[in-house]
Simulated assay, not measured.
Amino acid sequence: MKRFHIHLHVDDLSKSVAFYSKLFASEPTRVETDYAKWMLEDPRVNFAISTRGEGHGVDHLGIQAEDEVELAELKARALSVDRTLLDEGETVCCYSRSEKHWVTDPQGIAWEQFRTLERAEIYSDRRPADVEQGVAVGGCCAAAAPRSTVAVPAKSASACC
């Protein structure tokens, strides 16, 4: 079963870990000096935060597949939207070795579709030359496309999204 993925850039990791741990009523499944991740079951989401990259807010969205069949299905869907697909194959990103590809929506929001193969001890296997050639922006976890920043007011006049 696939899992929805959200990755946010945050200014202060420890404050954000405290906030999201209370919000989710769950401690992170992984914490590093620059990264934290919750693998929630209800709702089924892979929620990650990091201090890497520029600014704060939504870095990218995604769908995590459990196996290669699900990933192939996701890739076929991504190819059907008539947008450029960036296929990274196997890579190390966000302290995991994974197989992934990227597509951006019409607003420029990066969508990552991936399956995790195993845990990694480093954040990324990217080299500075990769970033310069447009392979990735802001480290490893962003497709070669503009990054979206979503501003959400602290208090909303409406109770709806």
Rank of each mutant, 00 (worst) to 15 (best):
D105Q: 02
R83V: 10
P28W: 01
D34E: 12
I49L: 09
R126N: 00
V58N: 10
G62F: 01
V81T: 08
V92E: 10
D67V: 00
D82F: 10
R3W: 04
H5M: 01
L86T: 00
Q64L: 02
W111S: 00
P146S: 09
E121S: 09
M1C: 10
D87A: 02
I63R: 02
S16Y: 06
G139L: 06
D34R: 06
C161H: 09
A48K: 08
I122N: 01
R52L: 10
E32F: 13
L79H: 09
P43N: 06
A110N: 12
R115Y: 03
A145R: 12
Y95T: 10
G134M: 05
S96N: 13
E118N: 07
T149H: 15
A154I: 07
V131T: 14
S158Y: 11
I122W: 00
L117R: 01
E112F: 04
T91A: 04
S21N: 03
P106T: 08
D42N: 14
G139T: 09
V81H: 05
V103Q: 01
Q133V: 11
E66K: 02
S80C: 07
F47V: 12
A65K: 02
S14G: 04
R44Q: 11
C93T: 14
V81K: 03
A143W: 02
E41M: 06
D67I: 02
G138M: 13
A18E: 07
S158I: 07
S148C: 15
D130Y: 12
A36F: 00
S96R: 12
L85A: 08
E132L: 15
S80R: 07
E41Y: 06
G134H: 05
A110Q: 09
Y35P: 08
P106M: 07
S14H: 07
A154W: 09
S156N: 14
P28F: 02
P153L: 10
E121G: 05
V10I: 13
Y35F: 15
A72E: 11
V81S: 04
G62M: 00
G62W: 01
D125Q: 05
S124K: 00
T84P: 13
R30T: 09
V135R: 03
A76E: 08
V58M: 14
A151V: 14
R52Y: 09
E41W: 03
S158A: 11
T51V: 08
R77N: 08
V45P: 05
Y123L: 10
Y20W: 04
T84N: 10
G53H: 08
S14Q: 08
Q133K: 15
D130E: 15
A36L: 03
E66S: 02
H60N: 09
L74G: 00
E27M: 12
K2V: 15
A25P: 05
G139W: 07
S96Q: 12
R119A: 13
D67S: 01
T149E: 15
G55Q: 13
G138R: 14
T104M: 10
A72P: 04
D59W: 07
I109P: 06
W102R: 00
S158P: 06
T84M: 12
R127H: 14
F24C: 05
I122E: 04
V150Y: 13
K155L: 11
V152I: 15
